[in-house]
């Protein structure tokens, strides 16, 4: 199954990707055949709760699935290069140069024993930039992500930076080699809300500067609304709804997407009325039954939901911009959300 994107040659193509983790209780199907594309310069968000497979998908694109996990199916292509099955030696030269990743916890992704400036310089020299040139550019990069006194701060160690400043350093390092694709995995989850606002601005600007596409992994629908062009909603290792942010977040079709939005307390109303919830918990990923994974928790589930698996299909009259994997998509479209 291939998703046809509106852009002629998408930058990133993920086709039927599947990842399993081998455990003593059996294989955990973390990602179960997902397909999507990211166009050059586009921001695509993957949202989902813990265990939905969003982070594993990102690691699979980077070729960094931790053992005992392994990619069992699918192809990842970046600008006509096939990354799947690429020898590790070649993959390494791509990482950091063509694809760069920003992690949730900048403290553990920076080496505590080296000066921050040197780490940015190293990110560039590994990929062939001359040392002197890299030095100058490292300072420029630090300035561009809003670190005051960059020449002096470059000589500081990671622990001398606050959480927000560290994440700026990570962004500077990620765009150092002007990658085509930035992957940010929960980049602001560990940060306070006022700092999150600053860092998201910096990330947006850095992405524009580097002329990169951004794949944003997050659980925060507010961040998605502010940053992304398109959004993929994942549940139990599959994409269950995708489309432009406006379509998916304003007119969600899938009961899970609706449930997620409804379960968010609002900043503006304080009714103290019970929040609508999605009953139950996500399924365990050991079994992969031929059924809609949400069916046991879904108030709209009918017999067919329990006996076969829905595929992503265009939501009425919206071929490119909105697709959902729900047998009751048509009924849901009629049933408007009151949010």
């Amino acid at each position: 199954m291939t998703i046809i994107s509106e852009t002629p040659t998408p930058l990133l193509v993920v086709d039927d990707l599947a990842v399993e983790f081998a455990t003593s209780s059996g294989a955990i199907h973390a990602v179960n055949g997902i397909s999507f594309t990211v166009a050059a310069g586009e921001t695509v968000a993957i949202v989902g709760e813990s265990g939905s497979g969003k982070s594993v998908s990102a690691l699979a694109i980077m070729g960094l699935i931790p053992p005992p996990g392994h990619q069992t199916n699918g192809v990842v292509r970046l600008a006509s290069q096939t990354l799947t099955d690429m020898p590790d030696r070649h993959y390494r030269t791509l990482r950091g140069r063509n694809i760069a990743m920003i992690f949730q916890d900048p403290l553990s992704s920076l080496n505590p024993a080296f000066r921050v400036g040197d780490q940015i310089v190293e990110a560039m020299t590994t990929h062939g930039t001359a040392k002197a040139e890299a030095r100058t550019r490292a300072i420029e990069l630090m300035e561009s992500v809003g670190i005051a006194n960059a020449p002096r701060r470059a000589r500081d160690y990671p622990h001398q930076f606050s959480g927000g400043m560290r994440q700026r350093v990570m962004i500077a390092m990620a765009i150092a080699n002007r990658p085509q694709l930035l992957i940010a995995d929960e980049p602001t989850t560990a940060l306070d809300v006022t700092i999150q606002a600053q860092v998201l601005d910096v990330l947006q600007a850095a992405k524009k500067d580097a002329d990169a596409a951004l794949l944003l992994i997050t659980h925060d629908l507010g961040v998605v609304a502010g940053m992304a062009d398109r959004v993929l909603v994942m549940y139990a290792g599959r994409i269950i709804e995708q489309g432009s942010v406006d379509e998916v977040l304003i007119n969600p079709i899938h009961p899970y997407t609706r449930g997620l939005l409804a379960a968010l307390p609002s900043l503006h109303t304080n009714s103290r009325a019970p929040l609508p919830t999605i009953a139950g918990v996500p399924p365990n990923l050991l079994s992969d039954r031929e059924a809609c994974a949400l069916a046991p928790r879904c108030e709209f589930a009918i017999d067919v939901c329990r006996s076969s698996r829905p595929l992503l299909e265009a939501v009425s009259g919206n071929q490119e911009n909105h697709q959902a994997a729900c047998f009751r998509a048509h009924d849901m479209a009629v049933l408007k959300v009151d949010k």
Partner: peptide
Amino acid sequence: TALIDEATSELVI
């Protein structure tokens, strides 16, 4: 009842 749902559904063995 809605609350009991989460609890009674699958537990990791």
